[in-house]
Nucleic acid binder design. Structure first.
Lengths: 139, 139
DNA sequence: CCAAGGGATTGGACTATGTCTAATTCTTCG
DNA sequence: CGAAGAATTAGACATAGTCCAATCCCTTGG
């Protein structure tokens, strides 16, 4: 578990560590993602970065999120057909997804035991395993 | 594993078993899903049902797929941010997802051992557990 | 300091998936 | 037959995300 504070200076370092040129917009977007440690979607990221003064366009938000993904600085979580969540936690873990509220909660990878994955067809390699536990309020 | 043939007559029975009034369009859509045993998305379903004569509108395709989901006659698989796959196999199982080709392959639930799911916060119940193994061609 | 070049950002048009609505058609049944 | 209710429809609409050409900005060399 990370204990770093998510200052803008630390964001600059983080970006550099991932080979990303730290620009104003990228710093703000990284800060939004990491300081609201959680699971934001693109429009939430945009709302947060533009809360005070509108300074980042939709195109840049999407460009930047995709750049972060490519450089593996963040991860995407696909649980809702209508939008992608971006997860600043790249340490292996899984998720509870509350289908009523849309809330995502982490499950530590240590907490789940997974055995007996079938062999892959030849010529394929595993990119990752996502476990999503869909939950809802009891009736 | 089902061995039934997916004739239109059998589709009528299947619809009735799920409390769905079997209309022409619903029979065709069920037939498309079950005879192409696999994982289709809405536009593929529409293309198949309208292959010979165009007789089913986009609205009906979506209405019907959502009705089938509601009645638990099929399942949705959310792995691609841009579209939903519909899965006629409602027996518990998981998926390989080939991120390069978009291909989905079933993993029998018996083949995977899953232990130690963390306790749910009170007031929540589990709807289901989806395991997605993302794979890609080895480089 | 200035100018050039290249990367970053931008508005806005565009695409694709999916939803909504009001009008129409189909089916059922007295 | 005729009324009522269910199903279907075309097309407008909503929304997430992509694309592109124009502009901006930052760095570097002279």
């Amino acid at each position: 578990m990370r204990t770093t504070e998510y200052t803008r200076d630390n964001m600059v370092d983080l970006l550099r560590q991932h080979g990303i040129n730290p620009t104003h917009q990228r710093i703000e977007i990284a800060h939004a993602l990491f300081s609201h440690y959680g699971h934001l979607c693109a429009d939430q990221v945009m709302a947060i970065t533009n809360a005070k003064h509108s300074e980042t366009s939709k195109a840049t938000v999407y460009n930047t999120l995709n750049l972060f993904l490519e450089k593996k600085m963040i991860r995407e979580v696909i649980v809702d057909p209508s939008k992608v969540f971006y997860d600043p936690n790249t340490y292996p873990h899984h998720h509870f997804y509350n289908t009523a509220t849309g809330e995502l909660t982490d499950i530590d990878v240590e907490d789940i035991g997974l055995t007996g994955l079938p062999q892959l067809p030849p010529g394929l390699v595993t990119e990752g395993v996502d476990i999503i536990v869909r939950v809802r309020p009891s009736p």
